[in-house]
Design a protein around this nucleic acid. Structure first.
Lengths: 299, 299
DNA sequence: GCGAAGCCTCAGTTTTTCTAGGGCTAGATT
DNA sequence: AATCTAGCCCTAGAAAAACTGAGGCTTCGC
């Protein structure tokens, strides 16, 4: 008479994932976006999970949800567990597609920093396939399928490689630069900027002792602003790393005045261990080397 | 023109769970049993997962599967992640049903050790609901829904409480004991034992310098063997903790000869932190106290 | 007072998952 | 050598789960 224990019912994994996402992101709608479903699906998953536990995990309010004490208690554990699960998935993915490295970065960095440097790197590594995805915000590398990420960050995480500090200064096409050298005030030209970094001009003006900036055109793609500046549309507030190429080839010229070092760094990070040899580390080293090709900016 | 990154496809969670179970248990069939589905379902989950990664995780052979190098590489990570997820689930469950404590133990311990002690413990804790489940083998407390487990173990895990060493010696009903005291050899009576512990008699006989045991009836439930011994069916090889009650009330009598201490301990363990106050710790303390009610066995 | 945000519910549909049953192979047994 | 058996594979159909879409409700902020 062996005891045949009825195996306990397993918890609904998808419900757990929905709970974790909703708790982390602070709402069902945000969780739904992350999970690529409608909010109603999240509602149902979490309802099902609450039925499984026999306890509420969220307090529902007309405008949003709040975690119950129980939900607050367990949220960090689930986040940690799913991070670990995600990390395992990333390791598997990397192992399955060895030789394929996927980089996530800002659109502007992709176009203005990475793109000019990649051909040489690719040419030196025939067996390696390098993909680039442009993202507006740094991904969670323990969850999302990128091997490397390259972003401007205020606080580089441990293990990450800081390539450069973010430094800004005004630049313009040679014709405008000459006019400025001849005495035309900066304010007499349109002041180009990126809509993602709306404070650049104000910060730099304050630092340089200039008058606050007039409003100029803001571009949602920094590469577009650079393009326009090259075409003589006005003065661009430049991020050193992103205009080095155009400065180098003379398409843009740095204008007189100080450079302002921001509290932000161009950081290369990875969920992989970059001290171990492998395709990812190899590419990371290549990017570090490539970032040193242009000297630092004089302040 | 905000970049709208097509969110990466999420990994199939249930496939991951199937992979982890199959890798840990060494086969799809065993995993299917754990997950409470048919083996075909596991096959499909894992196939789907392999399609997701674009790589094989198992080598299929006619008789069973073996992990590929990639599978071997990632298995520990997934096991760890699912353990953590399971632990988070257990914490949630415990938090949702506070005041309800669930114990897993051997059937024999449940009937002969726990059952006599529980009424007093329950009476002293009106608000606590105590459930007992009998299992043939210790559960993984990070995965399965038990708050405490009470088993004979050779290696108590860290944090567990060792209640007693497993000690065996022969016992019998008073009538038989008298006959033995009058000179009847042990071998002249049926030697009762438990089929889960088939070596008890051999070990004890060797230790006591007796002849190897004759074959006697083996019971699949130790409690049944005890019952039969009480009814005079023969001599039982007794585990001290499990016959203390019957010795105490005179239903069984210890026979002459040494007691043999086995390399095995009665261990109370938990996935919860027993140093923190709470229903589980409270009950654990009560069980520790209850285990001391009967003095140690003389060797 | 009104719009927007955010969650809920419910019905219907789509998608996924599961099972049942049959097949195949290799090791064990007779 | 023949047979048995364990364990995986496959497929079709059935069952279950998940998802969507539409309408509704409540509160917050303007």
């Amino acid at each position: 008479m062996p005891v045949n224990p009825p195996r306990p019912v397993l918890p609904p994994l998808n419900g757990l994932r929905a709970f974790e996402a909703a708790a982390r992101l602070g709402g069902f709608a945000a969780a739904a976006a992350e999970l690529r479903v409608t909010p109603g699906a999240v509602t149902q998953h979490i309802r099902q999970l609450e039925a499984y536990f026999g306890a509420e995990l969220f307090e529902r309010h007309a405008k949003g949800v709040r975690l119950t004490p129980l939900g607050q208690l367990v949220r960090p554990r689930f986040t940690e567990a799913f991070d670990q699960l995600g990390a395992a998935v990333q390791v598997t993915r990397a192992g399955a597609a060895s030789g394929h490295v996927h980089i996530a970065t800002l659109p502007s960095i992709a176009q203005l920093w990475l793109s000019p440097r990649l051909p040489a790197i690719r040419a030196a590594r025939p067996g390696m396939e390098i993909s680039v995805t442009a993202l507006e915000a740094p991904p969670n590398l323990r969850r999302e399928p990128y091997d490397l990420s390259l972003f401007y960050l205020a606080d580089p995480p441990p293990g990450a490689i800081t390539l450069a500090r973010d430094v800004i200064f005004p630049v313009a096409a040679p014709a405008i630069a000459e006019a400025v050298a001849d005495g035309a005030p900066l304010e007499s030209f349109p002041q180009l900027s990126d809509s993602a970094w709306p404070d650049d001009w104000a910060l730099w003006s304050a630092h340089a002792g200039h008058a606050p900036p007039t409003r100029g055109p803001a571009y949602s793609l920094y590469a577009l602003a650079v393009e326009e500046a090259v075409n003589g549309a006005g003065i661009l507030i430049a991020h050193a790393a992103l205009v080095a190429r155009d400065l180098g080839r003379g398409a843009l010229v740095r204008l007189p005045g100080p450079a302002l070092a921001l509290d932000r760094f161009l950081v290369l990070s990875s969920a992989h261990d970059l001290t171990r040899p492998g395709a990812v580390s190899d590419l990371a080293q290549a990017l570090v080397a490539a970032s040193k090709e242009h000297g630092p900016v004089e302040t």
